[in-house]
Nucleic acid binder design. Structure first.
Lengths: 192, 192
DNA sequence: CCAATAAGAAACAGTATGTATCTAATTCTC
DNA sequence: GAGAATTAGATACATACTGTTTCTTATTGG
């Protein structure tokens, strides 16, 4: 009697996209701590089982939403700027901006549930840096000696220190300091 | 009739100590994910309200338990080994061992609840490193120029990268590599 | 057009947090 | 040492969330 509007049902990728969008919006508005599967379902105009049929847990849902809303981290996301220094700076900027999109609440939240997530949840993208270092060696900018992992990881580690530990988005000047004071010298020394 | 043993009641610091010990033991045995206030109460032979009277939330209880079971991080915990290199290595070992006591599960768990915790939850102890650098300057080992924060933080950031991101306890050799390949050269350059 | 699939609704079991209430053990004060 | 104040410990409650089950029905595909 009461006119129940006949509701259209989404399916397949259309539905999946809507679910991930709802999860992302929910994350943005309430942060990781306040994130509930139920709220996502409501926001998407559906119910929890629909979500649980696709992602087995809350943590996996968050991870999927974050992944769907970040650009891919392929090693060639960083253009060749012509110098080691320029490439490193570009890479650090790229990471910083990427992190800015996700935000500390979600990042820390995910870190806290690493127990419940597949190991590869936090892509570290060392490939991007090795690519940059290889480019520099090919240019003849640095030697061709093997650069130890610690040196390769250093710039990313220092950026992460700012972002996660100090809760501070480094400015371009601060990124430049990381590159000039630590990264470039260390790489030059190592690849000698 | 049934002989209810008259139970002694602990109070004050004695009780508090027992609660923190129980929380610590619980963390060690089930990790952060499985940690519940109820289990702590049972382990301590008491009930939840006793815990909530002292710590307003689960997260604060965990933090208190960790703090109570770690040695203080005073800047002079690192003895003067006579050289910048030696001091840095000693500091990195000290931190690594400290982290080993807490473990990744708890560390990540706490990081994930930073939203619910006082900002100062994760003490970063940069004082320890500035002390070491000052000592080296006083020895005449390095110049007296101001060392920028990024350089000071670098060794700790790299260690953290290993521990938290790579889930790997670095060996003494790896710590030595951090010191020799990155920390010492960067500090020497900066303090020139 | 009919069978297979899967969306969406509703309700349930289980478990957790944090609170309120009560009693009795312990300590403090005079 | 008696009585008052404090607070441990027990129990039960309100609330919220996760993940599952069951059922109906819209949609798709052969």
């Amino acid at each position: 009697m009461a006119d129940e509007a006949v509701r259209r049902r989404r399916r397949g990728t259309e539905l999946e996209r809507a679910l991930l969008d709802a999860a992302w919006d929910e994350l943005q508005s309430v942060g990781y701590a306040g994130f509930t599967v139920d709220a996502v379902a409501q926001r998407a105009g559906t119910s929890r089982p629909v979500l649980y049929r696709r992602w087995p847990s809350r943590a996996q849902l968050v991870l999927a939403a974050v992944r769907a809303h970040l650009p891919d981290a392929s090693p060639d996301a960083i253009p060749d700027t012509g110098s080691l220094r320029g490439d490193l700076l570009a890479a650090l900027r790229w990471w910083r901006d990427r992190y800015e999109r996700v935000g500390p609440s979600i990042m820390n939240g995910l870190a806290g549930e690493l127990d419940h997530l597949p190991t590869e949840a936090l892509e570290i993208v060392p490939e991007m840096l090795t690519t940059i270092i290889e480019r520099a060696a090919r240019r003849g900018e640095i030697g061709t000696g093997a650069v130890p992992a610690h040196v390769v990881d250093a710039p990313a580690a220092l950026l992460r220190h700012d972002l996660v530990v100090r809760h501070h988005q480094p400015t371009d000047e601060e990124l430049t300091a990381i590159v000039d004071d630590i990264a470039v010298p260390a790489i030059e020394r190592a690849a000698r």
